[in-house]
Design a protein around this nucleic acid. Structure first.
Lengths: 201, 201, 201, 201
DNA sequence: GATGAATGAGCCTTCATTCAT
DNA sequence: AATGAATGAAGGCTCATTCAT
């Protein structure tokens, strides 16, 4: 039996744990971060974490869900723009920069690595990512406007996937090469051209 | 004392360990694969591995180096083509497929995650990746032909980086969404257009 | 402060706990049954159990006492029979069967094991068992009738002890060998002869 | 994979662990005895125990097997006697005494309790006990001599079972009542009569 | 070079018990 | 009387690493 109907307090406590765990995983990795460490960061006893989460796996699963919700919301905000493509081209530098933070990369890659092996986490990841993907499809359709209807089947999906790949790749690259943020000026112009291929009619 | 002047036999033994470890890491993950397991796969005792490698971390560092050499060689082979761009467009499906193997993704992401916080591994990774990057620059220059000289400074580097990001992103995506190989047909046409942006004059 | 002057309500609540604990212990064992589980079965909070019982040990002590009272009562009922020996011979099969329930055996053996090293529980056990023993002496005397007076000192006590041993042994045996109930037909005739030795003049 | 082919040294180390564990279980119970404690008693590190035994359960299983082998051997020795029944009647006091040691009872009951809940252990117990039972059948047949052939089917089995129950019951009783050894004089004569019922033609 | 027995620190998790409310 | 959130000690087990042989 899992937490049947989490009280408001329990919900807040869960957030504390998720914040603490995000921090710990980011700094030390999923396996190296101990529950004791997370508990200390969260300001509670190790034992109590198990009143809030089934086990360590469930914590990372919850982090994945929370992070995906963030991404969905970010895309939603982007959709508020009158001209999405223009907005993206304008903010390309910032977008690259945000995807080049090694500290964030650490957690993201850790989660992906774990998900590639842990079925429970993979399930959560797939479900969450499906939402992100759907939202991305919507974004691209909106950007294309009426032209979207004329495109062959799958074209939009292909664009959405490669758009996602591009930004995910930046995260990986930020670990592969040092000081990626210094390379933003050389990447940005090329990136803009790629974005146009992916988002313009 | 460090491993001083490795004999030829020692070198061969090291390869055995690297093969075994690659296999074990790929199947079970870096942390889950035990030295005992690697030793068994490598056909030697756990203790003896420590005569060949300082510790577990050094094994993965060596794997990273070896894998990067592979990538460099692959690029070299590609450069043998008379028309590199045509070759890549022709083999796009295969290339996407190769970067969509979840099993390989597992190890790659794990290594990246590990490198994002292990300075020793980060150093190896950066050195190796620098070689890959240099080789990629050469590939793009060759593809561009004489047109390369006319491009603004950094343009080629930007292309090389985003090319790398694109393929790295596919790896990440293969974990984020299930059955990525089923999506190759929708991704390939879009990918070809992106490759043209990155490789055509 | 100990539980001073238990109210009537408290007494009823204690019974709820004892019922719940008996159930939980029987199904999962003394150590495996958690206070949380018992609390849930008893329909109260874990914390409240500690208003009714000093600790987990006291619960099992109370169960032992209650169970011994049951045995005493059972013997009492047997004494109502006009011919006790005949009644026992008639119901031998049923008696063996009742002492061959592995589920009951589990709790009984667990309690004995626990009592063999927990002095507090040993004390309760000895006190309760003394009552059972006394009652058993009475039963045997009644069965023997006037002949009882002629028997040497200790003869009756010896019979009572071995009678108890015999049934206790069935409980142990039901764990040692599987499907003891299938063996009732072969045990019953022999058992009847033993009972006659123990209960006939 | 389990210990494939235990070396002689490993076998000796296993015995050390079994001795230590027997001691620890006897004194503190199966659940309360920690692996650390056993390791210390056995003179090795906790980790190394896991090179010799799969887990804690396997230790108790091995103890059960070893103890049953002892019982089988004891019965075998008894069979060397020219007149088994006479030998048993002669040594009744000693036999009762041996089955009345609370210290031994502790381990035995603990094991039984555990087996009643743990299927793995139950399997080992049933297998071992089957050997004991078979040996007991042989003993009784030998004692009966030619008369054995004339007895109805199952008669001998019934005797063997109740013989086992009787001694097992003494063990249980030694916990239920204090100072059982003081009661040997009153039990012995009655016990002799029971033994005659069980073993004489 | 090579073995594998041995170590021991450290991990996740459980649970009896307490206490503020 | 009653709750249930919270504690924290302890336990079984794993595994990188060492070292006597």
């Amino acid at each position: 039996m899992t937490t049947a109907a989490p009280t408001e307090r329990a919900l807040a406590r869960r957030q504390q744990v998720l914040d603490a765990a995000s921090d710990a995983f980011r700094r030390r990795g999923f396996h190296a971060a101990s529950m004791a460490e997370i508990a200390k960061l969260a300001g509670m006893s190790p034992g109590h974490i198990y009143n809030l989460f089934e086990n360590k796996d469930e914590i990372i699963a919850a982090i994945v869900e929370r992070d995906c919700e963030d991404v969905v919301q970010r895309i939603g905000e982007l959709q508020q723009e009158v001209d999405v493509l223009q907005a993206m081209l304008r903010e390309t530098d910032k977008a690259i920069d945000e995807h080049s933070q090694v500290a964030d990369a650490a957690l993201e890659l850790e989660v992906l690595a774990e998900a590639s092996r842990n079925p429970r986490l993979a399930a959560v990841m797939h479900a969450s990512q499906a939402l992100v993907h759907a939202k991305a499809l919507g974004l691209i359709r909106q950007t294309l406007g009426p032209a979207a209807a004329e495109l062959p089947d799958g074209e939009i999906e292909g664009r959405a996937l490669l758009l996602a790949a591009l930004f995910n790749g930046l995260t990986a690259l930020s670990v592969r090469l040092p000081d990626q943020h210094k390379r933003i000026p050389v990447m940005a112009p090329v990136m803009r051209r790629l974005l146009q291929v992916l988002l313009a009619p």
